[in-house]
Amino acid sequence: MAGLDIAFFGSSLVSAYWNGAATYYRGIIRALAAGGHRVTFYEPDAYERQKHRDIDDPPWAKVVVYGADPASAEAALDQARGADVIVKASGVGANDALLEAAVPAMKRPDALAIFWDVDAPATLARMRADPDDPFRREVARYDMVLTYGGGAPVVDAYRGFGARFCTPVYNALDPETHHPVPHDPRFAADLTFVGNRLPDRERRVETFFLDAAARLPGHRFLLGGSGWADKPMPANVHDLGHVYTADHNALNCSALAVLNVTRDSMAETGFSPPTRVFEAAGAGACLVTDAWEGIDLFLEPDREVLVARDGDEVARHVASLTPDHASRIGERARARMLDEHTYAHRAREVERLLASRGAQATVRP
């Protein structure tokens, strides 16, 4: 399809600081740019993200940083008005309600307004709990809702709220960003977990990571992510703090195994693989994940990934792993990702959706 001008309002493209969606945005947008599309990413100056940048402004997107106040958001919207596609992502972090109401109202008649939900289970739970949630009024005004995951339960729920069209565009691997690198002694461990401390993740981290560490006092565990400094931990857990994306490959390639712990809402919904799954598998790491419905759509249990139902099973996996076995699992996972789950695959899917929905938009009365 011909190159499109795409305006994308999200949390941040240049900083992963308190911004778990950064890798997803980068992968999707970089792949769309490779297909000839021109993307301008609008992000608010919020949560000190600009002070914790992971990357400079990339050559594959124009980045516009605007103030976190309503007037600055409105000025950014005015700048984006002429785009062929205008995307409002969930969880921008400043003036979300203002942006959600403005995007479908401001687009050209032949343009597309997309709500891209990077945390659909949480958004849907919020709307169910509050009949006055302002986004309830906006869902049906968008031409399309795309979601980070969630499968049929999320699609059905969005249709129930009046969405014209909804489909998942799952996380994926950017093989130019996440790939095998040499072992780094700084990150040597038997099991590594990276994730910010969040209310709907903490209990599961206790169950799947800290409990496993307590069961294996002779093994070394590494914990990366923001917010864990004052968390009581077993003595064999070493807190790394925030891990910048430049270190993710070394981190994933230096542990015997890497753990994924899904947030409460995503685990309950299923079909919501976090970016860490693809980053770790893309680096050839041996991945251990908590159990959630749909994992087999992305990786084959026992052959390409190890699945655990609790901390005891995590500990059993780690205790029984040998370097050779872990390496074989990681190699198979990486091959599966390259064959089926890169952001180039996802970008082609998005292009098909844009072409299909755009054709419908031009004939809508």
Rank of each mutant, 00 (worst) to 15 (best):
R201N: 07
A267Y: 02
P182D: 01
A212Q: 11
A113I: 13
V277F: 14
Y24V: 08
L299F: 15
A152L: 13
G10K: 10
P323W: 00
R49H: 00
K51I: 01
H52N: 03
G91T: 04
T269C: 02
D84K: 13
R336Y: 06
L13C: 08
M106E: 02
A267F: 00
R159K: 09
Q79L: 14
D264G: 10
A113Q: 08
N236P: 15
R204A: 15
N19G: 09
A7V: 12
E293H: 13
V103H: 01
G218K: 01
L259T: 00
R128E: 15
R352A: 12
P185D: 03
A280Y: 04
A229Y: 07
L216T: 13
A71W: 07
L223V: 11
A21N: 06
Y25E: 14
R197L: 10
L124Q: 11
D132S: 15
G93R: 00
V194H: 00
P175I: 06
P273D: 00
S90H: 00
T192Y: 12
R38L: 13
P234R: 07
A129S: 13
M144N: 05
R303G: 07
A89F: 11
N95Q: 12
E43S: 05
A291K: 12
A129R: 13
I295M: 03
D190W: 03
G36T: 11
Y25F: 15
A291I: 08
A347Y: 04
D184F: 04
P323R: 00
V237M: 15
E176F: 07
P59T: 06
N236Q: 14
V92P: 03
V145D: 02
Q79W: 05
A101S: 04
A152N: 10
D45G: 05
A61H: 08
Y66K: 01
P58L: 01
A102E: 05
E340K: 12
N249D: 13
L173N: 03
S320P: 04
P131N: 03
P58W: 00
I28A: 06
R309D: 14
D264W: 02
